[in-house]
């Protein structure tokens, strides 16, 4: 991988078949993201932003082309390998929060540490500190359904960052939040990611985020238009 690129995409194509017809979502995409960058993906609903994030995280596979993350070509890994790679190197934040309703706030945050075999006294204290920084001190043993939307998204951010992945993928993280709460969440995410030198790729409709990003890309008719932030 050239330079300090964390994501490198070559000739990426993805389509869906519906009613017997191919719908091209992404066409011949060539793109890379530098380590430590904050990249925003803009585009209308159905433009392929989430699809691109799914391809980067290995949740989905391209029809053609390749995706390299931290020097590993995702498509060359088998299902299990992709899953293990994702849990070690990528943190995910979703519009729907996707917290596990049967685990408490703290347990949700500890889960990636456990999956990566990193759970111990020190990491547990780190999780408590992180929750405190996110304004969730005292809510550690609460179940997610008792939290507001903003609080739930902050838990999701803590969960995405706790095992210090190199890459954070956020899919419409403020889509379910009011304007003010959305701003707060974005600011927190930005500061935490920058603090740890992590890379953040965020898909969004929101123009609020433009001021924070290093680079802004727009997906239009399956192609990327790049411009600096």
């Amino acid at each position: 991988m050239a330079g300090d690129q964390i994501v490198r995409i070559r000739k990426l194509q993805k389509s869906y078949v519906e009613g017997g017809r191919h719908h091209w979502i992404l066409r011949d995409l060539d793109w890379c993201v530098e380590r430590g960058e904050f990249v925003v993906l803009l585009g209308r609903s159905g433009s392929g932003k989430s699809t691109l994030l799914n391809l980067i995280s290995g949740v989905d596979l391209p029809d053609r082309g390749s995706v390299e993350v931290a020097g590993t070509e995702i498509g060359r890994l088998d299902e299990s390998g992709r899953t293990r790679f994702r849990r070690r190197h990528i943190g995910l934040v979703f519009q729907q929060f996707n917290l596990i309703s049967t685990l408490t706030v703290l347990e949700n945050v500890l889960l990636p540490l456990e999956l990566n075999g990193l759970l111990n006294g020190a990491t547990r204290r780190r999780a408590l500190d992180l929750l405190a920084r996110l304004g969730l001190a005292g809510r550690e043993h609460t179940f997610p359904d008792r939290l507001s939307g903003g609080e739930q998204q902050r838990v999701a951010i803590a969960r995405a960052l706790i095992h210090e992945p190199a890459l954070i993928l956020a899919d419409e993280p403020t889509g379910n939040l009011d304007l003010e709460t959305g701003r707060e969440v974005l600011a927190l995410l930005d500061s935490l990611v920058r603090e740890h030198g992590q890379t953040l790729i965020m898909a969004t409709h929101s123009r609020e985020v433009i001021g924070l990003a290093d680079r802004i890309l727009t997906i239009r008719q399956g192609r990327l238009e790049d411009r600096p932030g």
């Binding site: 995280s57 299902e79 299990s80 899953t83 994702r86 849990r87 995910l92 889960l111 999956l115």
Partner: peptide, 14 residues
């Protein structure tokens, strides 16, 4: 949904 989230977070099929 729980399984799907766990799969997203890195739990393998096995």
């Amino acid at each position: 949904r729980l399984f799907a989230i766990l799969r997203l977070l890195g739990l393998t099929r096995g």
